[in-house]
C-alpha cells in the first residue's frame, strides 16, 4: 500500500521555485531516506507532506488523503528541523498539551510519555522547564513528541542533530523497531552515515528536483555499479599474477601500489572466492582481502556532483 504520494509537486516562495515537479511514492512500513544539499528542498517537501505548507501546484497524498486533511493528523508524527517547544512549559506539560490535542486519554498519554522518555533517557528531565534543556535534550524531547500519538506515518527532519553517539544509536533502534511495527518513516538527514544501514529506500534531491529515488541498493547501483576490493599480498605481484587476475570475469581497473592491489568488481557479482583461488594457485598469500561497498555519502556526492 502506498502511504505517501506526491504528483507533479511544485512549491514557490515568491519567484523562488523551491520544488520542481516532484513525483514520489513511499510504501507502507518503508524507512525512506531523503538526502540532498542545503537548500535542496528537503524541508519544504516534508512540510508539504505534513500539510504545514500548501503546494503551488500538484498534489500530495498521505494515507490516501490530501496532505493537511484533518483525518491524517491523527496518524501523522512530524519532527521539524527547528523545533521550538514553548519554553515556559516543562517537558511533561508540553507533551501532555500535545497529547490533549490528539485527544489521547490522560492515562494512555502518561504511559506513552513514560515509555518514550525512558527510551530516550529523558525521564529525569521531564519535569524541568524546557528553557533549561540542552540542544540534545530538546531533540530527544522532539523525538518523543513525534512518536507521542503512535503515528502510522512519521516525518523526521534531521532527527540526529545534536544527539550524542549513544542517542544516535538509540534513535536508530527506535526507528528500526517502529519500521518493524509497520510504521512508515520518512527521514531527512545530512548525516548520511546514520542512514547507511538504516533506510530501505532513498530519494536524492538537489535544487528542488529529484535526482534519484527508489530502493537503497537500486539507487546506489545507479550511481556506482561496482565495489572495490583491496588485496594485500605477502610479496610484490608479478606480471603473470596481474594478467591472471584480469582474466577473472568482472574484474576491472586494477591498480597496484607495492604489495597492495585495488580492483573494481561488479556491484552484484561477488568474485572474491575466485580471486582467492587465483592468489593461492599462483603461490601468493593474501594477507588481507577487503571488499568495500560504496558508501551512501559517496553516492550522494556523485549524484549531487553530477547534478551540479
Amino acid at each position: 500500500m502506498t502511504i505517501i504520494q506526491a504528483f507533479s509537486l511544485r512549491k514557490c516562495y515568491g519567484n523562488l521555485e523551491a520544488l520542481k515537479n516532484i513525483n514520489l511514492q513511499i510504501e507502507e512500513s518503508e524507512l525512506h531516506g531523503l538526502v540532498g544539499p542545503n537548500g535542496a528542498g528537503k524541508t519544504t517537501l516534508l512540510k508539504l507532506i505534513a500539510g504545514v505548507l500548501k503546494p503551488t501546484s500538484g498534489e500530495v497524498k498521505v494515507l490516501g488523503l490530501p496532505a493537511g486533511h484533518p483525518q491524517t493528523y491523527h496518524k501523522l508524527g512530524f519532527l521539524p528541523e527547528y523545533l521550538n517547544f514553548p519554553r515556559h512549559l516543562t517537558g511533561r506539560e508540553a507533551l501532555l498539551f500535545y497529547s490533549d490535542l490528539y485527544d489521547i486519554p490522560r492515562p494512555d498519554a502518561l504511559r506513552r510519555i513514560d515509555e518514550l522518555s525512558s527510551q530516550m533517557g529523558l525521564e529525569e528531565a521531564l519535569d524541568r522547564h524546557i528553557s533549561s534543556y540542552s540542544r540534545g535534550m530538546l531533540q530527544r524531547l522532539g523525538l518523543i513528541y513525534a512518536f507521542l500519538n503512535d503515528p502510522e506515518v512519521v516525518l523526521l527532519d534531521e532527527p540526529a542533530t545534536g544527539l550524542d553517539p549513544t542517542y544516535r544509536m538509540k534513535l536508530k533502534e527506535l526507528l528500526k523497531r517502529k519500521s518493524r511495527e509497520k510504521r512508515t518513516i520518512l527521514i531527512s538527514s545530512h548525516v548520511l552515515s546514520e542512514l547507511e544501514n538504516l533506510v530501505d529506500s532513498l530519494t536524492i534531491i538537489s535544487k528542488g528536483q529529484i535526482i534519484a529515488s527508489g530502493g537503497r541498493e537500486e539507487v546506489i547501483r545507479r550511481f556506482s555499479p561496482y565495489n572495490l576490493l583491496f588485496i594485500e599480498l605477502n610479496k610484490l605481484p608479478t606480471e603473470k599474477f596481474l594478467r591472471e587476475l584480469e582474466k577473472i570475469s568482472g574484474v576491472s581497473d586494477i591498480k597496484v601500489d607495492g604489495r597492495n592491489i585495488v580492483v573494481r568488481l561488479p556491484y552484484d557479482d561477488d568474485v572474491r572466492e575466485e580471486i582467492s583461488r587465483t592468489i593461492y594457485t599462483l603461490r601468493f598469500l593474501p594477507l588481507s582481502i577487503t571488499m568495500r561497498k560504496i558508501s551512501l555519502e559517496e553516492v550522494y556526492l556523485k549524484a549531487v556532483g553530477e547534478k551540479h
Binding site: P70, Q71, Y73, H74, F78, P80, Y82, F85, Y98
Partner: peptide
C-alpha cells in the same frame, strides 16, 4: 517566529 505554530498546524485541531 519560533515555529511553534508549525507544530500546532500538524495537530488535529482546526
Amino acid at each position: 517566529n519560533s515555529g511553534h505554530l508549525s507544530i500546532l498546524f500538524t495537530k488535529p485541531i482546526k
